[in-house]
Design a protein around this nucleic acid. Structure first.
Lengths: 110, 110
DNA sequence: TATCTTTATCGCAATATTACGATTAATTAG
DNA sequence: CTAATTAATCGTAATATTGCGATAAAGATA
């Protein structure tokens, strides 16, 4: 065998990993960086900027959207995608939690 | 085709996504949480706690180590793994960057 | 030395991800 | 209405990840 025992982990563990997983591809980091650099956030100027086809970019956008990292609204012919501030706060909070506890334990550690 | 155009992205984009990717699996989140809850950090009590075989857990530990999320030192028969505070700081910094720029742009956004 | 314990690695199977061309759906422009 | 534009989805191929049993490597213990 060899597949996805995600049902055996807690819902929290699955949720957290889902968020991080969405950021686990260079194309998706590139998309986020592009979204940051734009004054506005109308996309698919991405086609032409990223070394990927329209279909592939659309797929990456969907993954970011499914994870809640970006929000998208249809706007005439094109779509407006922007970063979802809330999910970024959530991620930071998770990491702060990791860091905090680790700091207090560090002395006892290798 | 269908494989990894990572060479076409910047080194920074690949590095960042590599870090996040390491956190993109529920088992690896569970490992981190366990490392947090322990007073010390000697592992492979993990076998028995996670619903995975020893071989699989070892693989997940290696991925976390390769990404720099945990540090490991050989200690007699067993291995001492603990969180690498530095990489957690790095991740937080990246996210802070994402958040900051987004906040200032939010008004112009959908 | 022989054996036990602990962790890493190999080889393989199942599944998931990545990527693309082609097609579809929906809106805009003429 | 027709053509053009934009973005999503389908189908498929290539590759990567996940997971395990078996085995190997290395130190601990009898």
């Amino acid at each position: 065998m060899g597949a996805s025992k995600s049902a055996e982990f807690t819902e929290e563990q699955n949720e957290i990993s889902h968020l991080f997983k969405a950021l686990g591809h260079p194309a998706r980091i590139a998309i986020i960086q592009h979204l940051m650099n734009l004054k506005s956030c109308i996309c698919n100027d991405l086609v032409g900027i990223l070394p990927l086809s329209q279909a592939t970019i659309s797929q990456h956008l969907r993954e970011l959207k499914d994870a809640g990292i970006i929000k998208g609204t249809i706007e005439g012919t094109s779509v407006c995608y922007c970063l979802n501030h809330e999910s970024l706060v959530k991620l930071t909070d998770i990491l702060e939690g990791f860091k905090e506890i680790n700091t207090t334990n560090e002395a006892k550690c290798c």
